[in-house]
Structures are given as structure tokens and as C-alpha cells.
Design a protein around this nucleic acid. Structure first.
Lengths: 144, 144
DNA sequence: TATTGTTATACTCTATAACTATA
DNA sequence: TATAGTTATAGAGTATAACAATA
């Protein structure tokens, strides 16, 4: 069968990302986390006191979608909120959240090692710089 | 702000793919196509007589989701179906479909050039081989 | 006026289960 | 038994609009 798509970087990018995300969903699911929850948890852990809006800007998530996500994690006592000003909350991980965030980080690192192991050695060091350039150059992610 | 995710290949892969797909959706939308429809159209064009199931295996789409997609494109007279055996149809692009497929291919090539232009020159040639290795190595895509 | 958090809502993509007709 | 196509359905991700409270 002819495959007119296999020489397209964009197509390979989508397929690689889908495969990786499916694998990641399985790994984080084993911890009781969605992938979005895992990234949020890791980012709060690294930035205690961060607000929901700052999280949204960092992760490219809409505020409207962050609200129920944080609510779920607060209900599970993984994250605690404290008023920072009248509008916003400062977020921090609880003890349970700290443990889970550490596990999520470990899982992420494991997956990353696995991904890099699949990439032929001569291409390996180029992947992260190339991908970082692609998403940092994106215009649409800057506006909310 | 600390960013514990930016050194993860998996995270960069997801962000780069999201940005690319958003851009692609805009470009294909201008042609009246969804991204999935565009890829299907290009693949049928390159493989006249292909069945829906073969398309599904090539593109990693579920049969259940292919049915309404093909139905839409048949209703728009972009694709024609003819019985190949009692179970399956052979698919082919119509004249209108051929034109639209050519436009979709042009749009894809344009985007790809733009993507590669963003990647620093020393990393450029490594991107497609690295991504191809990643999604071709994926286990879950082989089973339907 | 702009920002934060929230609710409601809708659209797309994707996945599974169940069914029929055929090989 | 396995495969092709179909339908119904549900989950997840994501987007916009509108609102109240606050800066």
C-alpha cells in the first residue's frame, strides 16, 4: 500500500504523540491520575503558591477546564487552596499529593527513558531541542 | 516559575503535536475538511480500491469511527464506493475529491515546510526519523 | 477596565459493545 | 470463526460565552 503521509513531519508528530499519550494515560491511570492531573500536580509541587490562572498559562489549559480539575484534586486531598488575594487561590500539594507527584515524576522519567531508547542513537539528542522549538514557536498558545 | 516538564520528551511531543494539529485544523478547515478527512482522502487517492478496514489499519482509526466519516465524504461526492466483495467496498476519489485531495496535499506540504523551518538547522534532518521510530515502535497501534 | 474563578454548554476525537451480513 | 461495515453510546479533551467578585 502506498503511504503518502509517512514523509510528513506533521503526520509523524501526531502519530508519535498519540502513541505516547496512550501509553502515558495507562501509566498515570495506574496511579489514579489523568495525564492532565499529573502535569498539574507536578507543576504545583515545583511552584507552591501558584494560582490556577498561572497553571493555565504554563500548561496551555483553559481556565474553564482547570476549575473542575482542581476541584477534583482538592476533593481527593492532593492539593490545598489558600486565599492569596480576594480573587485567587495559592495552590500547594498536600503530603499525599507530594507522594503522588513524586510517583508521577518517576513514571514520567521512566516513560521518557523508554522513548529515547526507541529513537536511533544518532537522532536521540536532537529530539527534545527540535520539539521544544516547535511548540515554543507556536503563536496560538500565547493568547488565552 | 519552575518548569519541571520542559525537559521531558513526552511533554514536548504533546505540546508540539497540539500546536501543529491546531494549525492543521485551521488550514484544512479552510478547505472544508477535518484533519481526519484530509488524511483519509489523501490515502484513498494514493490507493484506489482500498477498503474502509484497510484505511483504518493504515491510519489507526477505529472502524466504528470510519463509517460516518466515509458517509460524510460520500454524501459530498468526494469519494465513491463500489462493492468489492459482499462485505466490503472499494473506495476511490471522485473528480471533485481528486482536486480537494491535491489541495490537501499542497496544504500539508506547506505546513511541513513551515514546521521544518522552525526547527534549528542542526536538528532538522533528525526529526522525521526520530518521530517515525517512535510511532512505528508502538505496540498498541498494531491491534485493532 | 482587566483579572480570577466558576458554570453551562457544545464540539471533536476516540473507544467499546453489539449487531448484520458475508467470507 | 473471522472479517466488514454499521449503530449507539460514553468518555475525555477542549473551546466559547457569560457571570460574580475583586484588582
Amino acid at each position: 500500500m502506498k503511504d503518502p503521509l509517512s514523509d510528513l513531519v506533521g503526520y509523524a508528530l501526531r502519530r508519535a504523540s498519540s502513541a505516547m499519550m496512550e501509553d502515558m494515560a495507562k501509566r498515570m491511570g495506574a496511579l489514579g491520575l489523568r495525564t492532565s492531573e499529573a502535569s498539574v500536580l507536578m507543576l504545583i509541587r515545583a511552584n507552591p503558591g501558584i494560582t490556577q490562572s498561572d497553571l493555565c498559562r504554563a500548561l496551555g489549559i483553559q481556565r474553564a477546564n482547570m476549575a473542575p480539575l482542581i476541584a477534583r484534586m482538592e476533593a481527593r486531598k492532593l492539593v490545598a487552596r489558600s486565599r492569596s488575594d480576594g480573587r485567587s487561590f495559592g495552590l500547594a500539594v498536600t503530603e499525599a499529593g507530594e507522594e503522588l507527584a513524586a510517583s508521577a515524576r518517576r513514571v514520567s522519567d521512566e516513560q521518557d527513558s523508554g522513548l529515547l531508547a526507541i529513537v536511533p542513537p544518532e537522532h536521540r539528542a536532537h529530539l527534545l531541542p527540535a520539539l521544544s522549538a516547535l511548540w515554543r514557536a507556536d503563536q496560538s498558545s500565547s493568547g488565552q
